[in-house]
Design a protein around this nucleic acid. Structure first.
Length: 512
RNA sequence: GUCGCCGUGGACAAAUGGUAAGUCAUCACGCUUUCAACGUGAUUAUCGCGGGUUCGAUUCCCGUCGGCGAUUCCA
């Protein structure tokens, strides 16, 4: 059994891709890469009523952003095309018919109202089991209770009907889950699920099993919400005669928010986006924030997301794509749901942003400052700014926010710093030092610094006496990169102008 | 209601039948002209609760509580 593994990520285009789905896709991707297997992107669009335009593209774009490479799929094609279930309906109908012919399924004509009434009846009777199965199917309107003639009659009359799976009466379903071990369920709790809907399209259960089998899928990695219906799927593999080649299952624990599951609403409330990228709901016009547009680096999200439910084993948590691929294993996946923590994600983001080349940060900075209408001489300037700021920021957009002085002279001065460091003595020192700066024929951080130190030694005063007011004059703010670096970056003319301006306009704090 | 999954410090989590790693967060100190980064250190867990097995259980068993999922002609 050293066959090539085949994995698949099979989302529904019923809305934007949830971050939890992305994590599933990531795990599939790691495994496929690690084992040199196939990774299929299959679109499960069997519910016409919930179809959302643009959702499929969003899924593809999200995966591309994170570098999740598929070997087959809607967007790349492949030997098992088509990869959209809505384009494979004949296949499902064929197997539904086969199940019908072999007595593993039957036709049902019950209306939604009748089904509701049945459930109501059972609930009122206090029945533990409210499923449509061997206990109730004989009291419903289906091809098991109706005569062959009547069934035929209804069919020719075009009466809406579905195909239901006939769950064996007494069955004990056992299967193995790679993450959770051996599991077993009683057949009495498995529904006679609808396999083919009245519109002729299959439900998830049929389509999923048929496609996984046809595409040679060896491992089904999906969310925990599928665990309860896995017994049904096992029964389906049985009935279809595919039990021998049934894929292995691995059910991932769910991703949670601060309170309960990570939903759109919870995400909104706690500031945790649930989508990888921005999404605009065309119907309502609502816009949802995504990680990409918020400025997160794909490697940061990827690294953090991977750790939510899986543990590499050692003490190292910062892992490159290659390391994630090499070390991932389903066996080390956690069973319990994991809460998403923005603070930790941010620490990863900070780490990855810090190691980006200055040019990369500058390239990301350009559109931001352009949009804000902030002036700068050229792109080399942005690179220089990026270099000075990279260790103090989490996002590129923090640069203009934290250090506006690289783009515009300060118009206001930090109050507390002014009070402490802009006294008469400070101003006098700065005034004198300002004069000395004229002596410099060249302008660079080291040159200004040398000059500064010489001056201090001469005056026999501490660094802060002059350093703080210099910073204040240059930036108006109490924190940031070294004042000399800032002076070099903004240039001689600008630096001197700012000092002059502060000296002239900002009164000493110890003067009324 | 029923079925199922899960339950280690604020969050993510490791290991183990012999009383508990690491990461993030928090705090302190160091470094630094400031901030950040970095370094060092510290605080936070009797492993949901109760019982059983055992010389000894977080680790095995049972019960219980709690969270989550499923119970849709949704996926």
């Amino acid at each position: 059994m050293s066959e090539k593994i085949v994995l698949r990520y099979a989302p529904s285009p019923t809305g934007p891709q949830h971050i939890g789905g992305i994590r599933t896709a990531l795990y599939c991707y790691y495994l496929a890469q690690q084992k040199g297997g196939e990774l299929i992107l299959r679109i499960e669009d069997t519910d016409q009523t919930r179809f959302v335009a643009g959702a499929e593209q969003f899924i593809v774009d999200s995966c591309n952003w994170l570098g999740i490479a598929f070997t087959q799929g809607v967007h790349v094609g492949g030997p098992n095309a088509p990869y959209r279930q809505s384009e494979r309906t004949e296949l499902y109908q064929k197997y539904a018919q086969q199940l019908l012919d072999q007595g593993h399924a039957y036709l049902a004509f019950d209306t939604p109202e009748e089904l509701e009434a049945m459930r109501q009846r059972l609930e009122e009777a206090g029945a533990d089991n409210r499923t449509y199965n061997y206990m109730t199917r004989m009291s419903m309107r289906n091809s098991l209770t109706l005569s062959a003639e009547e069934v035929q009659q209804r069919l020719t009359a075009g009466e809406p009907h579905v195909v239901r799976f006939k769950v064996p009466e007494k069955s004990e379903i056992r299967f193995h889950d790679i993450i959770r071990g051996h599991l077993h369920f009683h057949g009495s709790h498995v529904d006679d699920k609808v396999l083919l809907k009245s519109d002729g399209l299959p439900t998830y259960h049929l389509a999923n099993v048929v496609d996984d089998h046809h595409m040679g899928v060896t491992h089904v990695i999906r969310g925990e919400e599928w665990l309860p219906s896995t017994p049904l799927h096992v029964l389906l593999y049985d009935a279809l005669g595919w039990r021998e080649e049934m894929p292995q299952f691995a059910h991932l624990a769910l991703l949670l928010g601060p309170k309960g599951k990570l939903s759109k609403r919870a995400g909104d409330k706690y500031g945790i986006p649930v989508f990888p990228m921005d999404w605009q709901d065309k119907a309502s016009g609502d816009t949802w924030k995504g990680y990409k547009e918020m400025g997160y680096l794909p490697e940061a999200l990827m690294n953090y997301l991977s750790l939510l439910g899986w543990h590499p084993g050692g003490e190292q948590e910062l892992l490159t794509r290659e390391e994630l691929i090499a070390r991932f294993s389903l066996e080390r996946c956690h069973h319990a749901g994991a809460k998403f923590d923005m603070a930790k994600l941010n620490s990863f983001q900070q780490h990855y942003l810090r190691q980006k080349p200055r040019e990369t940060i500058a390239a990301a900075l350009k559109p931001i400052v352009d949009a804000a209408g902030l002036p700068y001489p050229n792109e080399a300037y942005l690179a220089q700014v990026a270099d000075l700021m990279r260790e103090r920021i989490t996002f590129v957009r923090d640069i203009p926010e934290q250090a506006p002085y690289f783009f515009r002279a300060p118009t206001t001065y930090n109050e507390k710093m002014t009070r402490k460091n802009w006294k008469t003595l400070n101003k006098e020192l700065l005034t004198e030092f300002r004069g000395r700066l004229n002596e410099l024929t060249q302008w660079s951080a080291p040159l200004v610094q040398d000059h500064f130190k010489t001056f201090l030694a001469e005056k026999e005063v501490g660094f802060g006496k002059l350093g703080a007011p210099l910073r204040l004059a240059l930036t108006g703010l109490p924190s940031g990169p070294g004042a000399f670096d800032i002076a070099e970056t903004i240039g001689r003319t600008e630096a001197l102008a700012r000092i002059d301006h502060a000296l002239a306009e900002l009164p000493a704090s110890d003067q009324a």
